[in-house]
Design a protein around this nucleic acid. Structure first.
Lengths: 196, 196, 196, 196
DNA sequence: CATGAATGAGTTTTCATTCAT
DNA sequence: GATGAATGAAAACTCATTCAT
């Protein structure tokens, strides 16, 4: 009995293949055939499952952002069972961000690519905007649990996310000898927590 | 009917044309003919002045980085005539960075493009690395004039530059209503100066 | 509106188109589009079936040499059914060579082209070397059936093949009024047979 | 006092540069700038001295053929002072041909190139025809001094020249281990002399 | 004579996309 | 749903040629 994959699975298989390809080449230099090869499917199929190459890109970016949103939510559910203080929760949040997001080099590489695409493509940009807004909002809410100045909380959140994205960039673009990524990350975050 | 022009100027004219093009399209989607059109020269000429498309890119990135390095040096000479205190100098430095670099949207757009290219191209990456090292070093030296902890100074410098790059990214990718870029920038920087 | 055709035939169709083109222009002046036009196919298809222009050339030369090797082998099988004496066989061989190879003007023209390419291209040269070695060996074996001096047989074979190639050249480069190609060919070959 | 070269010298300098280039690349792949570089002159000058690239080629072929005709004539004047018998003269002639023409690899390479060009270019072909006719005629006259059958002499001459050209081809296209070029040449020529 | 910037035609190659099978 | 042949647009690059200086 040949097992027929659900069409959704095939799509994900293709998006994962693109994810893999993006470690090697930018999207623009990645051909449909490259993706098909990485996915182990015929290139013609990509046009069956997706409208065109740009559609693959859009679905991919949605998929990546969704994936990490889920990752975060799963972590959040888990962490909330631990009955931590607000400050401890924030510290844990930073730890999660550092290890799973900011210093996840494969992810950071992909995000640099997404930034660039967003810079020139309003459609992609609005997807990315939404993700950043949510991220900043989430952090903002956390900080609001330990400070009364909600405007400051929002400012600090925005700054923190900007800082993390800058560090993600540096983890790809700079060599590790330039400075110690971990120290800079934790140093910054300790300061934030102290400030509150 | 060829018309002769100054020789070295032409190269800059072409690099400026690329700069202009990069406001519209990523480098990969910008054709040699696009650049030639923007420069008002024949496309064949680009191959006369540059080895190939990649050579144009490399020269362009060197040119951009050099340009802003000079801008900074000119500013530094100017500011030093004003006999400011060390802390005032640092504050002025932040002000310069904010207005001329981080919130210079044309520049930030170009830099997002350069990041992406650097992520996949070791040659470009090493050029960019050198620029970031110098930038972090410069800031480090400034901070060292007001603190004894040079390791902390270096960490803060790295964090600050990462933060600024993150803010540059946000200035392009986010809409102004997300948060007030200026407030976040100055809030962060005020904190740094207080900390010292 | 693509129309499917048999797959391996297409390659031969393209190689035959090149063969046709080489009657008009040297390979270097023959464009991919020229070949495609002669083959009645889209030019993009040539890059589907062949790696690049040079690959077409290599496959073509292999194809031509193979084609004439088969032609010879078919003739050899046929002639062996006729129970000729050794000397008669050699005479028949010369006759075959003259009419089917040396004085085959389309073939000679192509071979002058192949010589030139081989002179500058080691890869093609080694293909051609192999063919000449086989040709000289074949003739050598034939002569060995009627003489004991195998070194002499080999020398005569080499000289004969050189002579035939020189005559092929002349059949293209000289006008028929310069001398009678057939007379010179048969005069030379009669002498060879007498000598044995 | 800067010494001005006669324009004829400059032309020869350029033709010699082409000669040099043809050891590396076929004419079609040799650019005007390649030739200019080899000649140590500005590429624009080549258009001053020659109508166009094809004109350079024509002049070059005339120049090469002329050069070797002169070489032969000089040798002939020299050899005639030695009061040799007719057969000795023919033997000396073969010796001269072998060492100076047929086994002159640089020359042979150039001639393979000229053959190819001639195969597709009627203008070049007629120059080459003329040279071959003269060569065959010269040899014919020599053979006529030792035989009465002038038709046979002409046939043998044509065959000999064809053979020599075939050997020139082999000296470039085959590796020396295929057979001993010198032995095959002298073996063939001894036979000719015996036959007479 | 000499230089080298400028032009534009032409070439190979890549690749998203389509569609008959 | 798959497959892979076929199409055609667009890209980078080369280069003979021209000509102002």
């Amino acid at each position: 009995m040949p097992i027929k994959k659900a069409p959704e699975d095939k799509k994900i298989q293709i998006l994962e293949a693109l994810n893999q390809c993006l470690q090697e080449k930018p999207f623009e230099k990645t051909s449909i055939k490259d993706i098909a090869r990485a996915a182990g499917v015929n290139h013609g199929l990509l046009h069956y499952y997706f409208k065109n190459k740009d559609d693959i890109l859009t679905r991919y970016i949605e998929y990546v952002i969704d994936h990490y949103k889920n990752l975060f939510n799963d972590w959040l559910i888990e962490i909330k069972t631990q009955n931590l203080s607000e400050k401890e929760l924030i510290a844990e949040f930073f730890g999660f961000m550092n290890s799973r997001i900011t210093l996840n080099k494969k992810l950071s590489k992909v995000f640099i690519e997404i930034w660039e695409i967003a810079a020139y493509n309003a459609n992609i940009r609005s997807i990315l905007q939404q993700a950043y807004r949510e991220w900043i909002d989430t952090l903002s809410e956390m900080l609001n649990t330990v400070t009364k100045d909600s405007a400051a909380a929002r400012r600090i959140s925005a700054a923190t996310v900007a800082f993390l994205e800058g560090m993600a960039l540096f983890s790809i673009v700079l060599t590790p000898d330039t400075f110690d990524f971990n120290e800079v990350l934790t140093g910054f975050q300790k300061k934030i927590i102290e400030t509150l």
